[in-house]
Write a protein that binds this DNA or RNA. Structure first.
Lengths: 250, 250
DNA sequence: CGAGGCCTTGATGCACCTCAACCGACGTGG
DNA sequence: CCACGTCGGTTGAGGTGCATCAAGGCCTCG
């Protein structure tokens, strides 16, 4: 696999100067908890954005790591590909989230990051981030929290994959999406999925047919309404119960 | 769940001053890549060790986070416990590894850390670690790599749980242990498991009976030799093949 | 010696995979 | 315009890998 540089130069780029100071995501993204002055410093480092169109690649497994990417707009997936062709989606990522953390360890990306809708990311040169975080303790602290949160999230997925049944997995997945949409000011009960059944299945350790059946089952029970990619949650309480109790639906 | 302080005061402690400078694990642990002076600074922060006997708890989910812990000697597991009783081992940890990274995000531990044999850990007050890492860039960098490595490891487990069969999971698990023993100067083909079949199963998303059967199968094929907790790898190449190819054992 | 923890092995059932057919939406080209 | 292929999704029928339940062996420890 060739080592390409990981900056998104190979894609439709606009070298627009972005400013964290005026970004609508400053309460969600890296700047959380910084004062105006500090945000300015950070904004100078996060100097440009790039656009990735639907289906486009932000970086590939094997490419050299130089920067983290903060999602400004859009929706991406990350997935790993084993030598034997085995593939797995390791995460779906929304605005304000940070991509590329896994690459810090070896300085080589370990997964592909692919846009599921037209997206825009801010490039954050990692060396510079470390540099300024020496001067801004609260930035360093927040960055550590973000990495730690990713670990906690992964542990949650491990629990899901290790011990939940198909329907519980799907319920957990939908509630997770729901919460994240809510945090971003969207409806928690009414949203569009950006990914296919196969991608959901890959993430949840299920085959696409099983995902489809689980959707149908939840719909039959009037807990959700599924119309292709559109999901409407009718009864979020019962959906929550699906997560926890395997055999409590008497 | 009561908030206890997370320092291991509630256990058999010896406030022995430990020095990273003379520790045999300095090539494996946090000090990697630091010069003598820097190691001294780190050693002053990592001021004392504590012992945990087999079965003892280093910290519990829900307890307040203050320190990371570096394993100096021994073997521990971490596991999460869901409200509904679902439990899962999230990792087995050996000398030189760092525990508690998941707690940075909320400052509350998210899992239990339990010793599987008599162990000894160095306590690293996290605030102080952040403080000195501002002055020692290579320490900061290495710490980031460690966190990132944990994320990569978790992704590997997700892949395992999401797409491997029982035998592949066990093979992957054994090879992983094997490699880690080798890195620490022990035999890669001859070692003792510290955990029960049930704990292995919990980690691999399998029931203990399935783990036991998978062991027996590998033994029948003369790939490994199992004697209770003692494992001998007879044919590491064939064991490696078990990881990758589901149906290549013609 | 008995009790309890850990492990192994067998018999049975079920949740999910696999294979296959079909549908609708969409795009393309004659 | 319609014919056609492709892609994503749904649903059914049948197979299988693992869970479940159960019995019994080995080892340690009181």
């Amino acid at each position: 696999m060739p080592l390409e540089t990981s900056t998104c130069n190979h894609l439709d780029i606009s070298h627009i100067r972005s400013s964290c100071a005026t970004c609508s995501l400053r309460e969600l993204c890296l700047p959380v908890g910084l004062n105006e002055q500090e945000i300015q410093t950070l904004g100078d480092v996060v100097s440009h954005k790039c656009k990735i169109q639907r289906g486009g690649t932000l970086y590939r497994a094997g490419s050299k790591f130089q920067s983290l990417f903060a999602i400004r707009r859009g929706f991406l997936k990350t997935c790993i590909l084993e030598q034997d062709g085995r593939q797995q989606v390791t995460g779906f990522h929304m605005t304000g989230e940070l991509l590329g953390l896994d690459a810090i360890s070896t300085e080589i990306h370990t997964c592909d990051a692919i846009a599921l809708e037209d997206s825009e990311v801010c490039e954050i040169p990692f060396e510079k981030l470390e540099e300024i975080s020496r001067a801004i303790p609260s930035l360093m602290r927040h960055f550590h929290k973000i990495m730690s949160r990713e670990i906690v999230r992964d542990h949650g997925v491990m629990l899901l994959l290790g011990s939940m049944k198909a329907e519980e997995r799907l319920a957990t997945f939908l509630l997770n999406l729901s919460r994240r949409f809510l945090m971003r000011g969207y409806s928690e009960c009414n949203f569009n999925l950006r990914m296919t059944r196969e991608e959901i299945g890959s993430y949840l350790g299920l085959k696409l047919e099983t995902v489809s059946r689980a959707f149908s089952k939840l719909q039959d029970e009037n807990i959700i309404r599924v119309d292709n990619k559109h999901i409407q949650i009718n009864d979020i309480t019962r959906l929550r119960m699906k997560m926890g109790n395997t055999t409590c639906d008497t």
